[in-house]
Each structure stands twice: as C-alpha cells, then as structure tokens.
Write a protein that binds this DNA or RNA. Structure first.
Lengths: 214, 214
DNA sequence: GCTAGCCTCCTCCCTTGGTAGGAGGCGCCG
DNA sequence: CGGCGCCTCCTACCAAGGGAGGAGGCTAGC
C-alpha cells in the first residue's frame, strides 16, 4: 500500500518501527537506512516513496541538518521526525524545515500507528503536549498544511503568476514596478509556504494545481 | 491580425516599413521604437507581440548586442534582423543568437512582404545570396526551426525529462551518474536548441508540448 | 494608542545556473 | 583512414537565485 523509509541508526528501534508498520499498515513496504548518507541514497533511487521517518541524531547528521539535507534532496518526499528529544523549539524548527510531523520515541505503539495514518492521509502529527500548550505556530504550522497555495498573499500570488510564465526576478520586478529585492522577498516567502526549495518546483506545483489553462 | 514591433532609429524607414506592413498584412498592428531602450520597454509591456523587426545599428545598441538583449529580455518573441549590412558572418551570428530571419534593407517591398509572411508562418527568412552560397548553417539554422524538441539528442532529452521534474543540475548528475559539469553542458545545449534563456522556460516549453502526462 | 501583518527596500553572503572554450574518447560513415 | 557528431569532463567566470536579517511605512483591528 505505502512505501516508507525508516532512517535510524539504532537497529533495534528500526526493527520495532518496521514491525509496527507491518502490523498496522498491512501491505506496506519499508526500506531502511542506518545513516543519513544511506537515506539519501535510498531516496535518490526510489522516487515512489510516500513517507520518510527520520531519526534525529543520526551519526552523520547534526541535529536538524539531516532533515534539511533530506528536504533539500527530495522536496516532494514528506518527512516525519522521530526523536527522543521533545523541545518545543526543535519541533517548530523541524516544521519550519518542512517536516510533516514529529513523533516522540516515547510514543506508545498504537498512538504511533494513528500518527502515521494521520500523516499518510495528508495531515500533520504533533505530540499532544505541544498541541495543547497554548502555542499558535501560525506562520508555518496550521494553515499551510491544507491550502499551500491558498495561504499566499495577493502580492505573492501575483509574483507567482509571473514566475509561472518563466519570467526572471528582474523581469517580474520590471513588470510589477517594484525592486528586484522585493521580488526576491516574495519569492522566498512563496518557496517557504509551498515547502519547496527552488522556483522550478514552485512553478510545477502551482501549474499542477490551479491549471485551468489547458 | 498580427502585432509587430518595428525598432529602427530612422523615422523615414520606420514609416516605410509600417506602410508596407499595413498594406500587405491588413489588420495588423504595429508598434514603433526608435531605440533599443524603447524597444525593451515596449516588449515588457506587450506580451502579445508576434514579431519584432530589429534594425542593426540602433544608437544604444552595439551591433548584435541589441539582438542579444532583446532575446534575453523576451525569449519567446521572434526577432527578425533588418539591416543594411550583409556580411555572412553577421547573419550567422544573428541566427545563433536566436533571430528567426535576416532582411537586408535593400530588399524590394514585395520580397519584404513575402519574407515577413514566411517568418510569421514559422519559417525562417534569409537573403537569397546566403541561401545560395554553399553555406550549411547546420547547427542552428535548418533543423531546429521546425522541431525544437525533436532536434535534441537522446541524452539531452533524458536530461530535460529530469529538469521537468524540478530537479537541480546536481541531482540530475547524481541520478544519471555523470558529472554536474556534463549536465550543465547538456542543459546549455538544450537551452540553445529550444531558443530559451533559462531552465524554467525550457521546462515550460517542454511540458507544453509532449504533455501526455495529464 | 499599540500591535500585527503586509509590502517595500536594503546589505551581506553563499549556492546554483549558465556561458565560453578546450579536450579526450568513441562510433559511424564516406 | 579521416572527419564528424555525441558524450564526457574540466577550468574559469559571471549572472541569477535564494537565505538571513534588519528596517520603514501602511492599514486593520483591538
């Protein structure tokens, strides 16, 4: 049913996770990686993955840099962080980097399954503690998840419309009669909101959605 | 019917050209520009132009640099060079820069009309002299005009396929197991053959054509 | 009044994209 | 065999893209 990647350097935990998935998501296939490097290789060769479970604290990845690299390499792949650490700051950082969820290692098996299903369904999973404590992550967490494109401001949408036509920042600036730096600001905001890392990906995503054009 | 831009610093010649167009291509609209700067402004504000007639020797454009700038600014706009000069080298250079034709100023009115119609129909017009003298422009002139995409080599098509997915040069290199410099070489060749100036435009052009994907 | 969001613009900095030009290897064809 | 096209890779260089961070002005809402 689904194809998942479990990236964790602890063999036992990896196996446990795989077992949970096998039992809870029957028919799903799991790939494993013991390091970030291995994970990057795996994702490079499998473009049909549905989700990656990434452990924080892989030997070859400093903290969230592993997430950053993974997102960078394959922006289309949803990544959920699996970690022992539970600092609110780290979790928000991860979301900012494009993670679609954060699962504490202490999560009981059945809750874990619910979390995975929720994430595979396109939702975001966060540890209940965080959800409860009055934390309105606002900018990156709640709204964008469901309406990536809808969350753009008018001006951003306008800039995106020009990007889609293949125009450069400089040309967009000229047409909209604003400074190129301003265009860059908008573009950066767009990329962040759409969770992609290059204008090309933003364009593909945009023209894939709205597409009333042909 | 058509919207043309006539860029020439000589008012008399410009008027004559406009007159020829008015008589021969009834219903067509012509815009005028007396300098390259003016031409650039015009094209920036009119994205529905069909063709630009560019004089070589505009006050603010050194030789073919005007063509280069114009092509750079609006790659989608076909540009035909109108010039007094007739050196074979210049003509080939112009074609290399993406011009779709080269019309000597000495061309008689009726021939000029034929040339314009030919160009508007997607053909290329070159002064008969050049066509006759055994000059096989090969690389840029004859084949690409009709089949921009078809003229790509297998490898180039393969690279383009990855570009269309939104992948960076580095990622493509990794997937195809070749050096990034090689990917760049292919990308450059693709851009040249497709007559565009950025990967985004190449991608848009490519996904506009083949599109069996949706 | 103050705050929050948005738009505007800037500087500094690094990465990516793209061009130019050269060079070697391979295979095909006249 | 020699030439030609293609693929490969390289160096060097410049332009464009993108992130970080700060800053001012504006309006809407509390």
């Amino acid at each position: 049913m689904y194809r998942l990647l479990v990236a964790d350097d602890h063999p036992l935990f990896r196996e446990a996770m795989v077992a949970v998935i096998a039992r809870g998501l029957s028919g799903s296939e799991t790939l494993e990686a013991a390091s970030l490097g291995a994970a990057l290789e795996v994702v490079a060769q499998h473009d049909d993955l549905d989700l990656a479970l990434l452990d924080l604290g892989l030997p070859d990845a400093e903290g969230l840099s592993g997430l950053a690299q993974l997102r960078q390499a394959v922006p289309w792949l949803p990544v959920v962080i699996v970690s022992a650490e539970q600092h609110k700051h780290t979790i928000l950082e991860a979301l900012n980097l494009g993670a679609v969820g954060y699962i504490p290692k202490s999560t009981p098996r059945d809750t874990l399954l619910v979390a995975l299903q929720q994430i595979l369904a396109g939702q975001v999973y966060l540890p209940p503690d965080i959800m409860r404590t009055g934390t309105p992550p606002a900018s990156t967490a709640s709204p964008p998840e469901h309406h990536p494109l809808a969350s753009l401001t008018d001006k951003q949408r306008e800039v995106l419309a020009h990007m889609v036509k293949g125009e450069s920042n400089k040309m967009i600036a000229y047409r909209l009669d604003i400074a190129e730096t301003t265009v860059k600001t908008h573009v950066s905001a767009i990329l962040r909101k759409l969770r992609v890392s290059s204008r090309v990906q933003a364009i593909l995503l945009a023209s894939e959605r709205d597409d009333g054009s042909r």
